[in-house]
Nucleic acid binder design. Structure first.
Length: 594
DNA sequence: CAGTGAGCGAGCTTCCGCTTGACTT
């Protein structure tokens, strides 16, 4: 009998089916060993060496004894944890716990018969470079948390925690809070003319963009001046200067990853990320969708083939692109151990799971999956420029130009493509920007030189708007873009900063509290250039990648980064040096003297 | 002699990331 170990119990049944009777398949249920959750740092730094002291995670004792029991009876143990650095580390920790014996490492890139068989035919050794990259990540996160959190006591009793991820998430909310606090809205006017080409209705709106030969750089704030301009323009002649028509195409969006499905569920269905994750977990356990904690937008070739089959069955042939669409994963720090989130049985249709919360979320996933393989949409964008008083202004150098120029923009959908199914991907930022920037209206066919009739003109009052607040989902989207945090932790990051009282949620918008603002101020004042910088994680990831490729030494990276944090933390009020425990002789003699 | 304060030590708390359960409301 051979024992094969995976992370998730949900894979066991399927893999067992592919492997046949000679195999026992069991799960580790994620990590099994870690630095102890409580107590001291549990990492010793001596002579450039880094020595973490790991302990079995309490929750894992049952899984570990089960694995030990099965391993004892097995002739061979194969470690088939996920193909990324956390998975490699899990494999290593499992092997350490099960004791001295030979292990083989196999890597499944998908749980399909062909992939599993291919992987089983190509076992390899443990990749200690990947394991060390994970150890570096883990130890450094510990050092940041354990050295920086105590310094917060000087901020106040309520200030409890700081970390490489949570503090940056908090900083984003806090800085937005300050921007909004500083913001003073300004009232201004836009001059909008209702024009028509005689005999060619309908009328359309055009907006003032140039005055006396100069672009309107500053907003028009004076009501009396705006009114005078309106009255003057109304009496002038209007003539088309140019009519530019061009085509623009909109490519299909990628299928969902954890961060993007959370964003879409928030905007379209009003679910917060924690609710979305619960629903996804259930959809996954019932076998309706692929794994839901992923940063990948990759799809299995069979899945793409199914999507294309459905598209050709349900839609006009022009909705099916000639070739399958490959979506590159855009997230800054993707590890791509899994596929994108997609339905496992798309042939049953979008509404296969009904109209409850789970059914609605499934429908969203189904639509996005099919849409991601559909043809691009095409729009015709028309930009019309109109002169008011075409020869009404003489510039200082003597050239004669129009007194004013107005512009109208129109957009017509030539071909909806994937939008027939998924609609536009409305983000919250886009919603709060408002629609008055680009009118969707159709413009009549007008040629350069055509004379136009002015039907009406008015100065419309507008007001500038502060930047939008983050929601849980839009903050996660930002974190993903900057490579901060991982799919399995996004919802937890939000929970942490909410529970600590650093951030509050009001009507689904995030507000930094006074505590959150003072914690951020303190951290920025003391740790700029280090973990509190938005790009710190990106730089760290470069180092971790070098470790994983065997180009850098993990202990050197961790030692240097840790002592840099120590120096800043001591300046910020940390007492003692947790990185250098006293030599054992000293503490011994101290004890004896007493 | 009672009250106060300095100093010391013990105990508690703190990080990120991987994966699901079930001592009962």
């Amino acid at each position: 009998m051979k024992l094969l170990i995976v992370e998730s119990p949900n894979k066991i049944k399927k893999i067992r089916g592919f492997l046949g009777s000679g195999f026992q398949v069991a799960a580790s249920f994620g990590h099994v060993r870690d630095l102890p959750a409580k107590g001291d740092l549990a990492v010793a730094f001596t002579d450039g060496k880094v020595l973490p002291t790991y302990a079995t995670i309490e929750r894992s004792t049952r899984a570990v004894s089960e694995l030990a029991h099965l391993a004892q009876k097995a002739d061979e143990v194969l470690l088939a944890t996920d193909p990324d650095r956390e998975g490699e580390a899990i494999a290593w920790h499992v092997s350490q716990l099960l004791g001295e014996r030979a292990y083989k490492r196999v890597v499944f890139h998908a749980i399909t018969e062909s992939e599993v068989k291919k992987a089983m035919a190509a076992p390899r050794d443990m990749d200690m470079r990947l394991v060390n990259a994970q150890q570096a990540r883990r130890v450094l996160d510990r050092v940041v948390g354990w050295l920086v959190s105590p310094t917060l006591r000087t901020v106040g009793k309520a200030a409890k925690s700081a970390g490489r991820v949570q503090s940056v998430a908090l900083r984003l909310v806090a800085e937005r809070e300050k921007e909004i606090g500083r913001f003073k809205n300004i009232d201004y006017f836009i001059l909008s003319a209702k024009l028509e080409k005689p005999g060619t209705p309908p009328p359309f709106e055009a907006r003032l963009i140039e005055w006396q030969g100069k672009p309107l750089e500053q907003r028009l704030k004076n009501a009396a001046i705006a009114e005078k301009m309106v009255e003057w323009c109304k009496k002038q002649e209007f003539k088309t200067i140019s009519c530019d028509r061009r085509e623009s195409s909109r490519n299909a969006p990628p299928p969902f990853s954890t961060a993007t499905v959370q964003q879409a569920a928030s905007v379209r269905l009003g679910f917060n990320p924690e609710v979305t994750m619960k629903l996804l977990q259930h959809l996954f356990e019932e076998g309706n969708i692929t794994y839901h904690r992923t940063d990948s937008t990759a799809l299995a070739p069979e899945a793409i083939a199914e999507a294309r089959k459905l598209i050709s069955k349900e839609f006009h042939p022009e909705y099916l692109p000639k070739d399958p669409i490959i979506h590159a994963t855009k997230s800054a720090n993707a590890q791509e151990a899994h596929e994108a989130i997609r339905p496992t049985h798309p042939e049953s249709g979008a509404d296969a799971l009904g109209t409850g919360d789970e059914g609605k979320l499934y429908r969203l996933i189904w639509q996005r999956f099919i849409a991601c393989q559909m043809a691009s949409g095409r729009d015709q964008i028309t930009t019309l420029q109109v002169a008011c008083a075409p020869e009404g202004h003489k510039t200082p150098d003597g050239t004669v130009v129009a007194m004013a120029v107005f512009e109208a923009k129109g957009k017509v959908t030539l071909f909806d493509g994937w939008r027939k199914l998924a609609g536009e991907d409305a983000t919250e930022e886009a919603k709060s920007k408002g629609k008055d920037e680009e009118e969707e209206a159709e413009l009549p066919l007008i040629n350069s030189g055509d004379t136009l009739l002015i039907l009406d003109m008015a100065a419309q009052k507008r007001s500038t708007k502060p930047p939008p607040r983050f929601t849980q989902a839009s903050l996660i989207k930002k974190l993903e873009k900057d490579g901060i945090g991982r799919p399995s932790t996004y919802a937890n990051i939000l929970r942490t900063i909410l529970e600590r009282g650093y951030v509050e949620e009001k009507k689904r918008k995030l507000h930094a509290t006074d505590l959150g603002l003072s914690v951020t101020d303190f951290l920025v004042r003391n740790f700029t250039g280090n973990f509190i910088d938005i790009n710190y994680t990106a730089r760290l990831e470069d180092d971790l990648d070098r470790i994983a490729r065997g180009e850098a030494d993990w202990e050197k990276v961790v030692t240097e980064a840790s002592f840099a944090i120590l120096a800043l933390a001591q300046r910020a009020g940390l007492r003692g040096n947790p990185l250098k425990p006293l030599p054992s002789a000293t503490s011994f003699s101290a004890r004896v003297e007493r």
